[in-house]
Design a protein around this nucleic acid. Structure first.
Lengths: 253, 253
DNA sequence: GGACGAAAAATTGCATTCATTTTTTGCGAG
DNA sequence: CTCGCAAAAAATGAATGCAATTTTTCGTCC
């Protein structure tokens, strides 16, 4: 089940909304050893090193991370509260696998959070931050024109991330990072490669996003963003299989 | 400020969205001993038995709950990830006190979540569930007319809770319960007693809420709910002092 | 050959123990 | 009397140990 036990746990997938956000959001966990382990273990699971509904072997992980069971179990409890794993009484932890229905629910929550972020961003964003988003948008458009999928994803992710940052709301950032992390386990990127219609649609939606943000039209941006996530969800449907233990995915549309 | 300081700390404010929701949301924690302790400790803190920024004494709590330090520390880690307490390296846990800015942020997130709940509820609510909300609304109106503050709070809370339930989205429920729990530590209820204008305004907003819900106008309801929370936030401002260790508050407007 | 059941092995949950850091206490100097 | 510093006391973070439950294994019976 584990494809390559020799792979080091901290393979970087280039996702911006990862642990930095989570760690910076709660400074108390930033430098503690426990926080470190928590982040590493979370990555280990999110990156798919453990099979879908598989058991989380304490002993093995203890050896792998070079720690005792006590801090590991503490981390497991936290990951369970985050919804990443499931704790069965006297039966240990299992990697929680997302069914189609829960995946849909998670997308909706992401949509709600992005909608909120957009609304708040319209109230608080600085001119400089807006300019940066506009720049990213044009860069993304360039990627779209030359069919650079990877670059497009990166820009897209960066834009959504900047909007959340611009909302300037730490609880929101933390929650957003949490849900984004849960969705990272599913692979639904690269759909645009086969679904050019969706790609064009997404690009048009981003035009609307930028326009609403420029006009600081919070309510409007809120609706657009929620719809945007809904469409992303729709595009991802059918491909909502839980992530096989081979690779992580980017959150993009 | 507070009309009745003699109120017992665990005065039931009609808050349905408490631990039952949290527990039922994550079934793995429902019946385990750890889950039990987690809920108890959370209540213990939320109800204000510990001072604002005070240290969380492990020893004392171990004796109080009749357990060892290991499970207690596990629970503390989880509560820290929920944002209820703060973990300082080598310095133990402290009850996180909400500054004015973070309180505002939390209100906004609650607004975003309620907005999302309203949107989803319009898509999924059953006729029976709507009827129940309508009934509660009229009951609340009755309370309003006869100036029954307590009954009004209970109905108000029940309505918002039903909307979240109607959204039929478990991650949303869990997140909502989490943020509601964090806000429970601040006391901003009973403001309506001195602020009759706000009371009337809130009642009018609830009329709009019901109307939008009846028409299943998701986007509209979403906006109304966010604005409703914004106004609640405004009404609570100035009273955002951290909760002294004597009483809990109800989440109502 | 497959199924049932008991014993062995492993695993979980929690308590206890140990090293390290922090906090308090106590004493002496200014 | 106050300040500073060193030692004692307490508390934290993590490791180990132990009882209880679960999972696996292996032998037996049908």
């Amino acid at each position: 089940m584990v494809p390559d036990p020799v792979t080091e746990p901290e393979a970087d997938t280039g996702l911006v909304t990862g642990d930095e956000a989570r760690l910076s959001a709660i400074p108390s966990l930033a430098k503690s050893l426990h926080g470190e382990l928590l982040a590493r273990l979370r990555d280990y699971i999110v990156e798919g090193n453990l099979a879908a509904g598989a058991r989380v072997p304490e002993r093995i992980l203890c050896e792998r991370f070079g720690i005792s069971r006590t801090p590991l179990r503490e981390a497991l409890k936290v990951l369970a509260s985050e919804g990443l794993i499931e704790l069965l009484p006297n039966r240990g932890a299992r990697v929680r696998q997302l069914g189609a229905e829960e995946l849909v629910d998670l997308f909706d929550v992401m949509g709600g959070l992005e909608a909120l972020a957009g609304r708040l961003a319209c109230e608080k964003i600085t001119a400089a931050a807006y300019d940066e988003i506009e720049r990213l948008h044009h860069e993304m458009y360039g990627c779209y024109m030359r069919r650079d999928l990877h670059g497009y994803f990166a820009c897209n992710q960066a834009i959504h991330d900047r909007i959340v940052q611009a909302a300037d709301n730490e609880p929101l950032r933390t929650s957003y990072a949490n849900f984004a992390g849960r969705l990272r386990r599913v692979r639904y990127s690269a759909n645009l490669d086969e679904n050019r219609d969706r790609w064009g649609e997404a690009m048009r939606e981003h035009e609307e996003i930028l326009d609403a943000l420029r006009r600081r039209a919070g309510t409007e941006l809120s609706d657009i963003l929620f719809g945007h996530l809904r469409n992303k969800r729709r595009a991802a449907a059918g491909r909502e299989t839980a992530c096989p233990p081979d690779a992580a995915a980017g959150v993009a549309s």
